[in-house]
C-alpha cells in the first residue's frame, strides 16, 4: 500500500517535472520564432537612430511613420505589388483548372489506365529535364517576358494533385457515382454539380497552397522576366533587401523630401529603416489572411499525409 502510494507520487512528480520543462522549452521556441517578427514591426515604427544605437528591443524608439511615408511614395514597389497580384490571381486560376480536372479521373478507382497516368505524373517528381531545356522551351513558345512564363510552366504541382485526388477518394463514396450514373448523370455533370460543391474545403486548400507559392517565389521571374516593369514583388524586394545598397534609387524623391524636412535624418540610416517597413508591407496579404486560413493549411497537410 505504502509502496504503490509512493510510486504514484514519484510518477506524478516526474510527470509534473516533465510538464514544467516542456512548458518552458516550448515557450522558448515561441519567443525565438516570434521575436524576429516582433522586432521587424517595432523597428519599422522606430526612429532610425534608435535602431542604429540598439535602443529598439522591446518597444519602438520615438514611434513615427517616416519610413512608411517613404515606402508609400516608392512607385516600383507598388508596381511589383500590382504585378504579383495579377500573377497570383491568374496563376491560381490556371492551377485550379489543371489540378482539379487532373485529380478527378484519377480518383476513380475503376478508370482504365489509372496506373499509367499516375506514373506519368509522379515520375516528373523524381526526374526532370532541368533548367536549360525548360528555359529553351519557354523561349521557343514565345513566353519570355510575359505573364504566361510565370503561370503555365508551374501549372500543376504533383503533390497537390495527390492531395485533391485523396480528398475526392475519401470524401465521395463510390455509391454516389453509381447512383448518379443510374440516374443518367454524366461524369462531366457530376463533376460540376456534385463533386465541386462538395469539395470547397480542398479547393480552399489549393487556392492557399498555390496562392502563397505564386506570391512568394522569384525564381521563374528571375529567369523569364527581364523587363523591369513586369517584375513581380519578390524581385523588387530582392533589389531592395538583398542585392543593393542602392535601395534608395527609386525612393530618392520621397526620401529627399523627408531629409529636407528633417535635417537630423541620415540617409543611410533611413534606408535601413525603410527595409523593416518594406518587409511588413510585402508580407501583409499573407500575414493578414493567415490567422483565418491557418486551419485550411493544416487540413491540406493532413489530407496529404493520408496514403491514397
Amino acid at each position: 500500500m505504502v509502496t504503490t502510494k509512493s510510486l504514484k507520487k514519484k510518477l506524478i512528480s516526474g510527470d509534473t517535472l516533465f510538464d514544467v520543462v516542456n512548458f518552458i522549452l516550448l515557450s522558448c521556441v515561441l519567443i525565438a520564432v516570434l521575436y524576429p517578427l516582433y522586432f521587424v514591426i517595432i523597428a519599422s515604427f522606430s526612429d532610425p537612430d534608435g535602431i542604429y544605437q540598439g535602443k529598439t528591443y522591446l518597444l519602438p524608439y520615438k514611434p513615427n511613420i517616416t519610413g512608411y511615408k517613404i515606402i508609400f511614395g516608392y512607385k516600383d514597389l507598388w508596381m511589383g505589388y500590382a504585378n504579383s497580384l495579377l500573377y497570383t490571381t491568374v496563376g491560381v486560376l490556371v492551377n485550379l483548372v489543371l489540378t482539379l480536372t487532373m485529380a478527378y479521373p484519377l480518383s476513380r478507382k475503376n478508370l482504365i489506365g489509372r496506373g499509367f497516368f499516375t506514373f506519368l505524373m509522379v515520375f516528373t517528381m523524381y526526374f526532370s529535364g532541368g533548367l536549360i531545356p525548360s528555359y529553351l522551351l519557354v523561349r521557343k513558345l514565345g513566353m519570355l517576358n510575359t505573364i504566361w512564363a510565370l503561370v503555365i510552366p508551374t501549372g500543376i504541382s504533383v503533390f497537390n494533385v495527390i492531395i485533391v485526388r485523396t480528398f475526392f477518394q475519401s470524401s465521395i463514396p463510390e455509391e454516389l457515382y453509381e447512383s448518379a450514373a443510374i440516374d443518367g448523370c454524366s461524369n462531366t455533370r457530376f463533376f460540376f454539380q456534385m463533386l465541386l460543391p462538395l469539395s470547397t474545403a480542398v479547393v480552399a486548400v489549393m487556392v492557399l497552397f498555390y496562392g502563397v507559392g505564386h506570391w512568394n517565389t522569384y525564381f521563374n521571374a528571375l529567369i523569364y522576366i527581364s523587363d523591369r516593369s513586369k517584375y513581380p514583388l519578390q524581385l523588387i524586394l530582392r533589389e531592395i533587401l538583398v542585392v543593393s545598397t542602392e535601395a534608395t534609387r527609386g525612393m530618392g524623391e520621397a526620401m529627399r523630401r523627408e531629409v529636407a524636412a528633417n535635417g537630423n535624418l541620415d540617409k543611410q540610416r533611413l534606408a535601413e529603416l525603410i527595409k523593416f517597413g518594406i518587409i511588413i508591407v510585402s508580407s501583409l496579404p499573407v500575414l493578414i489572411l493567415y490567422p483565418f486560413l491557418q486551419k485550411y493549411f493544416v487540413k491540406g497537410v493532413m489530407i496529404g499525409s493520408l496514403k491514397g
Binding site: 516528373t124 503555365i152 500543376i156
Partner: peptide, 22 residues
Amino acid sequence: LYLFLIPGISYFILFHYIPMYG
C-alpha cells in the same frame, strides 16, 4: 473522364517530358 485528363496530361508532356527529351 478522359477529356478531363487532356489538359493535365498535355501539361505534363509539354512542360516535363519535352524538356526531358531536351
